Amino acid sequence: MLPAFVERDAVDALVAAQWSRILGEPPAALDTDFFASGGTSLKAARLAGALRGASGIKVPLQRIYELRTFQGISSWLRGDARTGNGRFVTLNATGAGTPLLLVPAASGGVVGLHRFGGDPVDRPVHGLQARGLNPQDGPPSSDLGEKVADFVEVLEASDMPRRLHLAGYCVGGILAYELARALQGRGWEISSLLLLNTSLYCPPLTVEEGMREKLRQLVAEAGLPAEVAERGAEAVLQELATGEDYADFDGRVRVFGSVGAAISGYAPQLADFPVRLFSTEDRDDPADIAATTGPVVDWPDLGLPDYRQYAVPADHFEMINHAPTLEAVEAVMAEIDCTGS
């Protein structure tokens, strides 16, 4: 048995979203068998069609039978150069509601957010990938304005409808807020901005400090000695022994550092689109609060003209896989779609 399922990239997130939509829950592990998990011939046909709708790649039904496992299906899709390498990713192509755009958090991509592409979210769901995850795209920027301008360029080159909801998890909420302001200034209609446990405590952080923080996280998760992180990205990758290409690994770590540097000392300007904050009890990290210089107000203190806040009965890391939270997010978007507020 392979380790418990954690999606590795945008391709995994895309497949997991459709798998969840068809079977009602994501795969338990990379080697989970579609048919052993409740898949039938009809559901296999639906999965093939859903994957084609999300990826733009024709998936023969016979391939689902041959590949069977999540890892097999995902690896086959990954073999197509168009899948997962783009900056604009589709997690679900269909649904009744106004489309939802997922803005990346510190990871720089849609990894971790695949549940928003499955039930109960009833709308097209797309996501952005930060520059730098694919080394061929060039290095990431640590300037917030440049990051937002880059996302605008990606969106305006896509076929994304000009009316949409935006959502950002954790620090991704800050990127989403600024992207919503930029898009609105270019004539896009922002149905809502959904903040998924986004804090306004943003202590000063350089790219290098952010990279070291990411390496320490990876080392701690792997149960390795803490001193390994201080030897740099190459040493950490060697110890992790994942087989990942160093350029890709270094890119991920640099993107994390660039996001942290970009939001350092952030203070939002007033916006007039609907803002909805879904907040857990552990939203604000005490370490970030202690390191933040100067007074910082919270979202409710900004005087936003259309703001509501919802308590989430899960912790920070659980909420993006927490079914009641997903249902609440969809209900809020559906209400706004119907009433406009």
Rank of each mutant, 00 (worst) to 15 (best):
D245K: 13
F273W: 03
L218F: 03
Y266W: 00
D245A: 15
D250E: 15
D250K: 11
P286T: 10
E239Q: 15
F249R: 08
L205A: 09
T293M: 10
F256M: 06
F273Y: 08
E227F: 00
V275A: 08
G223R: 12
D272V: 09
F256L: 05
P268W: 05
G260H: 02
I289A: 12
S264N: 06
V259H: 09
F249M: 07
R276Q: 07
A222K: 12
Q217T: 14
V236P: 09
V275D: 08
G210S: 01
V228H: 06
T292V: 08
Q269W: 02
L215S: 06
E208L: 11
A262V: 08
D248S: 14
D284G: 07
S279N: 02
D284K: 07
D282T: 11
P274M: 04
L270F: 01
R252E: 14
L205M: 15
R252F: 13
V275W: 10
R216D: 14
E234K: 07
E221Q: 15
I289R: 15
A261L: 00
D250H: 11
G243Q: 00
A262E: 06
A229E: 13
V255M: 04
T293P: 00
L215F: 09
L205K: 10
V207P: 04
A233R: 12
R254G: 01
A229Y: 12
T280V: 08
E230P: 06
L205E: 14
V207Q: 12
T292R: 10
V255A: 03
V255I: 05
R283D: 01
